[in-house]
Amino acid sequence: MLHKLYDWIDERLDVTPIWRDIADHEVPEHVNPAHHFSAFVYCFGGLTFFVTVIQVLSGMFLTMYYVPDIVNAWESVKYLQTQVAHGQIVRGMHHWGASVVIVMIFLHTLRVFFQGAYKKPRELNWVVGVLLFFVMLGLGFTGYLLPWDNKAFFATQVGLEIAESVPYIGGDLKTLLAGDPEIVGAKTLARFFAIHVFFLPAALFALMGAHFIMIRRQGISGPL
């Protein structure tokens, strides 16, 4: 049944080469844990991607109940966590995943660094990877404020003061982030929400696309 449906579509659109090109490529022996167990270090990039997918999915679902407003934000989080079916699990996935993704990125970076896989011709991919790391940190920073509890509020205040300590542009930078020169409040929350769910994810997807296209063009670096 599925086979017939696939053949029907394939006959008209010739989709086989598309997915073959994406999925059907050999894993080199030195990258395959079945040959050398130590090759598990090559999994961290994929695991980062996997956790990122979980973050995107759980985040999409969380916005069904969350509101970025100082009066209702905390109440809506409390409601979705305590009253909505599986709310604790879905919020838990997003909460813990946020930490796990940083750990995975870090391990992936360590592997690339210690194997020297960033060297010519892969320098550009290293640069994109570092940008991805910063975007991920930005997602963590902006997401931390959203539950609008005490921890979120004071952590953001500290984060904003760190931004303020930048020479010359610090003051403006803080105002730009918080949406107000003095208050950390309604405007800050709305702004952080917008950055967290629209701006940074857009940057993340674009950079991930570049990261993956480059690795396919250049292939995985050879054995040590």
Binding site: L57, S58, F61, M64, V84, A85, H86, I89, V90
Partner: peptide, 15 residues
């Protein structure tokens, strides 16, 4: 296992 809780979360108004 990953998607099931999210689907339950989304259809909560029906439950």
């Amino acid at each position: 296992a990953m998607v099931a809780p999210m689907v339950g979360f989304a259809i909560d108004p029906l439950l």
